[in-house]
């Protein structure tokens, strides 16, 4: 993994996910937290799922009554999020 992209806002509201997706590479991963978890339904993200690994924070999807049916989006709890930030070479926060 090269960069872990942490996305904190909904692409239905602003363009941070779009900026992230414009520079994300196949070695990178995306982690959705806060309102960023709403992106699990965003078309721009959905079309990249075959190429890029995407995670969503369980605590934050639960808080927002979101169910993840898409098997290509992985769910991870806070401890798994911590482990991913530790394993990543570096992180970039889109907020």
């Amino acid at each position: 993994m090269t960069i872990l992209h942490i996305v904190r806002s909904s692409a239905f509201n602003d363009n941070k996910l779009e900026l992230c997706l414009s520079i994300v590479t196949e070695h990178d991963s995306i982690f959705l937290i806060d309102d960023g978890v709403y992106n699990i339904a965003h078309p721009s993200l959905l079309k990249l799922l075959d190429r890029i690994e995407v995670f969503a924070l369980t605590e934050h999807t639960n808080a927002r009554a979101l169910n993840i049916d898409n098997k290509k989006i992985r769910t991870a709890d806070l401890s798994a999020f911590v482990a991913l930030t530790d394993n990543a070479e570096k992180t970039i926060t889109w907020q």
């Binding site: 090269t2 960069i3 414009s22 520079i23 994300v24 590479t25 570096k90 992180t91 970039i92 926060t93 889109w94 907020q95």
Partner: peptide, 13 residues
């Protein structure tokens, strides 16, 4: 842009 950004050790937005 992505290649250059990847050269950084710390990225702040």
């Amino acid at each position: 842009f992505a290649v250059r950004l990847n050269q950084a050790d710390v990225i702040l937005t």
